[in-house]
């Protein structure tokens, strides 16, 4: 079981398939890794790039993760690793970037066996950029492997999907995620459990939260503020939005972060109110959530969560973030 040794939490099955491909040299020319952010799509893709290029593999299909090539791929600083992602403050991958990548891919690999094109969050590519990539995805030059990641395969053109081997990565069960956090990152049991819940089983995101205690604190603060806003009067709510949108990261980003917390809050309330056994995200504030759940109907919590999810899309669609937050809060009980 080489896949076990790839150290990609929860995706051993995918690692196993890829390891066999690497070991037997039966590589597809393009792979697509789908799953929510922070789940380990890029980690798995990079590990695969290591597996096919490692100079001193420990076993066939198992990268050593110690040689120069492996270390450079790990830090995404490898001459034969071309990364395509949204750049320069834009949230979109543009057609010019695709053209530049195609130019690079036409050249023979510099030092490695395979030139790897890593297309990160390819759903951010606009339609013409995705279409420009089609020819390369269909007939990749020899010794070129394309690895794409996306949040959900529905967000890519069907013509892209049909040209890739798709690996659907799923979040880990929470207890396994917690165990992975304890074993690998040496996080204490209670903290590991909390992180597992907060990340919804996305180990990469959990590790990121763990590495940035500030982000974790901010999230906690947002949650507590949100709980206090329930039952608060309109004046308090509007005053809160005013403070929120003055965040130094800009109003849009601030509202985005708040929205993500609010969604998790109302989802938890909905789960509590319905009496479901599904694990909560905000496991720390379980008491407060259960208290809230007694005051609202399941349908109301559900409607709020759905409205907030829609708001997240609207935020990307260039809606005024402050207005959006204010209207949303008007609907709260």
């Amino acid at each position: 079981m080489t896949g076990m040794d790839w150290k990609v939490f929860g995706h051993e099955w995918a690692a196993e398939i890829l390891a066999v491909h690497a070991a037997q040299d039966t590589l597809r020319h393009a792979y697509l890794f789908t799953g929510p952010p922070g789940i380990g799509r890029r980690t798995l893709a990079l590990r695969f790039a290591q597996a096919i290029n490692c100079l001193t593999p420990t076993a066939p299909g198992l990268p050593c993760r110690a040689c120069r090539t492996c270390r450079q791929i790990e830090s995404q600083q490898f001459p034969d690793l071309s990364i395509l992602k949204a750049e320069g403050g834009s949230r979109e991958i543009k057609i010019d970037q695709v053209r530049t990548l195609q130019r690079t891919l036409m050249l023979a690999p510099y030092a490695a066996r395979y030139r790897v094109g890593l297309l990160l969050d390819f759903q951010n590519a606009n339609e013409s950029a995705q279409n420009a990539m089609l020819k390369t995805l269909e007939e990749a030059p020899t010794r070129v492997i394309l690895l794409a990641t996306t949040d959900a395969q529905e967000n890519l053109l069907p013509t892209i999907l049909s040209r890739c081997e798709i690996m659907r990565l799923r979040p880990l069960p929470l207890d396994r995620a917690a165990a992975a956090l304890m074993d690998e990152a040496h996080i204490e049991a209670a903290e590991a459990r909390r992180l597992a819940h907060l990340s919804g089983g996305r180990v990469g995101y959990a590790l990121q939260l763990h590495a940035n205690p500030k982000q974790l604190d901010k999230r906690q603060a947002l949650l507590e503020q949100a709980l206090s806003l329930v039952q608060a009067n309109r004046r308090t709510r509007f005053a809160y939005v005013e403070v929120l949108t003055k965040d130094k990261e800009g109003p849009r980003e601030a509202v985005r972060q708040a929205l993500e917390v609010w969604i998790s809050l109302w989802r938890d309330v909905m789960l509590c109110a319905s009496g479901a056994q599904t694990p909560l995200v905000n496991v720390d504030s379980e008491a407060a959530l259960r208290a809230l759940a007694r005051q609202v109907e399941v349908s109301q919590a559900r409607a709020l969560a759905a409205r907030l999810t829609l708001a997240l899309d609207q935020l990307d669609g260039n809606v005024n973030p402050r207005l959006l937050a204010e209207t949303l809060l008007l609907d709260w009980p």
Binding site: M106, L107, A108, Y110, P141, T142, R143, V144
Partner: peptide, 8 residues
């Protein structure tokens, strides 16, 4: 001078 070759 070293140049990568074009594959194709």
């Amino acid at each position: 001078l070293v140049s990568q070759l074009i594959d194709g």
